[in-house]
Amino acid sequence: MKDIINDMNGGCACNAAPQTPAPEKPRRVALRLGLLALGLAAWVAVYASLERAALWLTTDLLGLDTGTHLGEAVRFFVYDTPKVFMLLLLIVYGVGVVRSFFTPEATRKALAGKAELVGNVMAAGLGVLTPFCSCSAVPLFVGFVTAGVPLGVTFSFLISAPMVNEVALALLFGMFGWKVALLYAGTGLLVAVVAGFVIGRLKLEGWLQDWVRNMLAMGGGAGPQRRPTWNDRLDAGREAVAEIVGKVWLYVILGIGVGALIHGYVPENFMAGLMGRSAWWSVPAAVAIGIPMYTNAAGVVPVLQALIGKGAALGTALAFMMSVIALSLPEMLILRKVLTGKLIAVFVGVVGGGILLVGWLFNAVI
Results as ranks from 00 to 15, higher is better:
D3H: 10
I5F: 13
C12L: 09
C12R: 04
A13L: 15
A13I: 11
N15T: 02
P23F: 13
P26G: 00
R32T: 14
W43E: 04
V46M: 09
V46Y: 11
Y47S: 13
A48T: 06
L50Q: 02
L50C: 08
L55P: 00
L55Y: 13
L57S: 08
L64E: 08
L64P: 10
T68M: 07
T68F: 05
F76A: 06
Y79F: 14
Y79H: 15
D80R: 11
T81N: 08
F85S: 00
M86T: 06
V92N: 01
V95M: 15
V95E: 00
G96M: 01
S100C: 13
F102W: 13
T103M: 11
R108D: 07
R108Q: 09
A112H: 14
K114Q: 15
G119M: 12
A124H: 06
G125H: 08
G127M: 10
F132Y: 06
V138Q: 15
V138D: 14
F141P: 11
F141R: 09
F141Q: 13
F141K: 05
V142I: 14
G143L: 13
F144S: 09
T146Q: 02
G148R: 08
V149C: 07
V149H: 05
V149E: 01
L151P: 04
V164I: 03
V164E: 03
V164W: 04
A168W: 11
A170W: 02
L172T: 00
F173L: 13
G177D: 13
W178L: 15
V180T: 11
L183R: 03
L190K: 03
A192F: 05
V193Y: 00
V193G: 07
A195G: 09
G196L: 02
L202H: 01
L208G: 08
V212K: 06
M218T: 12
G221H: 02
P224A: 15
R226Y: 09
R227Q: 13
N231R: 15
D232A: 11
A240E: 11
V241M: 10
I244N: 04
I244P: 00
I244K: 03
V245R: 01
K247M: 12
L250R: 15
G255R: 10
G255C: 09
G255W: 10
G257A: 03
V258C: 07
A260W: 12
H263R: 10
H263A: 12
H263W: 13
P267A: 14
E268I: 07
E268V: 04
F270A: 10
F270C: 06
A272N: 14
R277A: 02
S278D: 14
W281A: 06
A286K: 01
A288K: 05
I289F: 12
P292E: 08
P292G: 09
P302A: 10
L304Y: 07
L307C: 03
A317L: 05
F320I: 11
I325K: 04
A326N: 07
A326G: 08
S328P: 07
L335T: 03
V338E: 10
V338Q: 02
I344E: 01
I344M: 05
A345Y: 08
A345P: 00
F347G: 01
G352F: 03
G353N: 09
G354A: 01
V358I: 15
G359F: 07
V365E: 01
